[in-house]
């Protein structure tokens, strides 16, 4: 019985996504049943849409920068988390994880006030990057905690006893061992940033990000099939990225010699 419920639940989870390719290839400009026939013209429209190309380029730039900075901050926090405790450490690490449970609109509103009203800056891709790094860092820490906490500190000590400096011991011993976690963190941060809308809508400059552009399209019924085609590509891309991330996360756990017990969080 429980198994049947689980299958029903998965159908509920996947129902909206399953509709995407159906309407992306449907030869009708209204997103409704009955279906009209097969076409690929919505996909070819994507290739000729230069506004979309600009939005995708912006989003890719933002997502790559976010992934790099969030993972760097994540490495610092996760490594500190696995090291000796000092007064206030739990509080500080808890504070850094806070954006995970904060409503995104609070992050958006507070950064908008600081950037526009207090500092008087123009919004740009960098304002979106700054906010995305803030919300991606907790995810990065959660992933990297798994990698760092399973390390045996004796290995780095052994390398230092054998004459390596602290930095080269880290680079030669620890870094390769946590590398799968780092790759996984980069991919997850990239995926979150690429898809994030609530904050980007507040902080985007004159060039919209891809979700902000999609938001604009959703108001025009004629554009909806194109959105379906774009969505199909995005879903396929996310699934590929996540599968790679999951592969690296598991490889990391295998390298650290621990049993796999859970998912990303």
């Amino acid at each position: 019985m429980l198994r049947g419920y689980a299958v029903l639940y998965l159908i509920f989870l996947y129902a909206p996504i399953a509709l995407l390719p159906i309407f992306a290839f449907n030869d009708g400009s209204i997103i409704a049943f009955p279906l009209q026939g097969f076409t690929t013209r919505w996909f070819s429209e994507l290739w000729t849409n230069s506004a979309l190309h600009n939005a995708v380029q912006n989003s890719l730039f933002i997502a790559v920068m976010t992934a790099v900075f969030a993972t760097l901050l994540g490495i610092c926090a996760a490594r500190a988390g696995a090291m000796a405790s000092f007064p206030g450490k739990q509080g500080i690490l808890g504070f850094v994880m806070l954006p995970l449970v904060l409503p995104e609109i609070i992050v958006a509103v507070s950064l908008l006030i600081v950037l526009r009203q207090v500092l008087g800056l123009q919004l740009s891709n960098w304002s979106v990057i700054a906010a995305h790094v803030l919300i991606c860092t907790p995810f990065s820490i959660a992933i990297l905690n798994g990698a760092f906490q399973n390390l045996d500190p004796a290995m780095e000590e052994a390398a230092m006893d054998l004459g390596e400096s602290r930095w080269s011991a880290f680079r030669l011993i620890t870094l390769p061992l946590v590398m799968p976690g780092i790759v996984s963190s980069l991919l997850i941060s990239f995926t979150i940033s690429l898809d994030e809308f609530i904050i980007a809508f507040f902080l985007t400059g004159t060039n919209p990000t891809m979700p902000v552009y999609i938001w604009g399209l959703l108001r025009f019924p004629g554009q909806l099939p194109v959105v379906m085609a774009l969505g199909t590509i995005l879903v396929a891309l996310s699934i590929i990225l996540l599968t790679i991330a999951e592969y690296y996360r598991r490889r990391g756990l295998a390298r650290a010699g621990v049993a796999d017990t859970g998912g990303f969080l």
Partner: peptide
């Protein structure tokens, strides 16, 4: 978790 990571707006 997969459906959660796919485009929220869409």
């Amino acid at each position: 978790t997969i459906p959660f990571w796919t485009s929220y707006l869409i």
